[in-house]
Design a protein around this nucleic acid. Structure first.
Lengths: 241, 241
DNA sequence: CCCCAAGTTTGCTGAAGAACAAAGACCAAC
DNA sequence: GTTGGTCTTTGTTCTTCAGCAAACTTGGGG
């Protein structure tokens, strides 16, 4: 993690290049980025401590600088569903972008996270005055919508094994790190988590993973998954219909 | 249907009040609405003929004036999933709003539909120059996202009976008409359609509906459903977890 | 170093619902 | 009125996967 060793204070003097390569800010000049940074509140979150919770007033919007965030919804029955994962460089909590005034889900850091945030009241300022910010933000909304849509289709048409395989593939494509012998998911993830992403049980996920390990598709240990044969997993995820 | 008896030509001289009560245009004055109407292409679609198809270049965006539209996605395996229904007064095909240049799904009229459409190139003009248009459009995006999210959670956590019940309830809330003895879904809908909305089979939906009819929750005939005890259906939809 | 909590594996059983099958009902067109 | 296509119902069988239960593994904290 880039910033793990740095104190939060350092952000105050951080070079404007910090945001310069992140899509929503890519088109901006240094003075503009400086202005944006001056309005930002940097904050560190430990794994497990919610950044914001479903239903609360959306007072701020966020940018994840480092770490991974899990966006979850909890049903009345206590079931948890993981809606999506946020990776470094992405905006989140942007309820304002879609005309909402409460957060639709809860954001939980999976590991130590470093985030910037701004008051929601700044949203219209950003979209109106910073070139490309609105466009990029809506593109993010579009991508998430597309992903949700795909998952909906999967849930409706695919078997558990295919769904779990796709979830794993999605994770390595969004947040994979090349390692010797394959690609690993670069944040801690449990069978329970995978089952919350796919609408199944940890038991079933465990059985599937064991099976995959036996035929050489993955290698996993506690809270840790390496895909050793991504192609094989793709093939499996497309089986049967 | 309001316009069923009218020719399309009449739109050319339609009063500006036509759009005045529709949310995205609510804040506009008559000259502005006139300008928008002048850019619009009105068109009638018969049930079953696609307005646009998944994957095609998003050359226009649409407003549904009358009728009902079903937005579907088709898998490689040929399975169909109904993503949502559009009712009169709603924008659709607004890929531009979320930074896409192709349509993410196919739009099929369920009954005879009357739509207005504009070239996508006008999108930035509308959002920039017409007060409230952007805000309302993004609110629509937000609502659809919320609905999809809810369905995702349902698919992951609920049983078939609960899912189907909720689908029916959602339909009557979005597109219900009060009739003697209950609320009816005011467009034709088959068991197959309901199963495409809930990820089950027409057989299972048929069994469920028969059961519900027996205990007095609904009354249905060919392509036609009346909910006679909405409260009972809500109770049922919340059962078990 | 040991303990404990969190995470994982595995076996067994049963229920939900899909798949297969076939007949019946309704509607529109001829 | 007849015919054919679409939609619906109902029965039976079979698969998948959730539920329950219990043991095992792992790694961090005291």
């Amino acid at each position: 993690m880039f910033f793990s060793k740095l104190g939060v204070g350092i952000l105050r003097k951080l070079d404007e290049s910090l945001l310069g390569h992140i899509p929503p800010f890519r088109k901006l000049g240094r003075p503009e980025i400086r202005a944006i940074l001056d309005l930002a509140e940097p904050k560190r979150f430990a794994a497990g401590s919610a950044v914001f919770e479903e239903g609360l007033a959306a007072e701020r919007f966020y940018l994840l600088l480092d770490g991974h965030i899990r966006v979850i919804r909890t049903t009345e029955g206590g079931d948890q569903v993981i809606a999506l994962h946020i990776v470094a460089g992405q905006l989140f909590g942007i309820a304002a972008a879609i005309g909402r005034d409460t957060y639709p889900a809860t954001a939980i850091p999976v590991d130590d996270c470093l985030v910037l945030s701004w008051p929601t009241s700044q949203w219209s300022n950003f979209t109106a005055n910073y070139d490309g910010f609105a466009t990029e933000s809506y593109k993010v909304v579009g991508e998430r919508m597309g992903e949700m849509n795909n998952r909906l289709v999967e849930m409706a048409t695919q078997q558990v094994e295919q769904r779990v395989a796709r979830a794993v593939l999605r994770l390595i494509s969004q947040s994979g790190r090349k390692v010797a012998g394959g690609i690993e998911i670069d944040f801690p993830i449990t069978r329970q988590n995978l089952s919350d992403m796919t609408g199944t049980t940890l038991h079933t996920v465990s059985r599937l993973m064991s099976g995959w390990e036996k035929i050489g598709l993955v290698k996993s240990s506690r809270r840790h998954i390496v895909v050793t044969d991504a192609h094989g997993l793709v093939v499996l995820s497309e089986r049967s219909g």
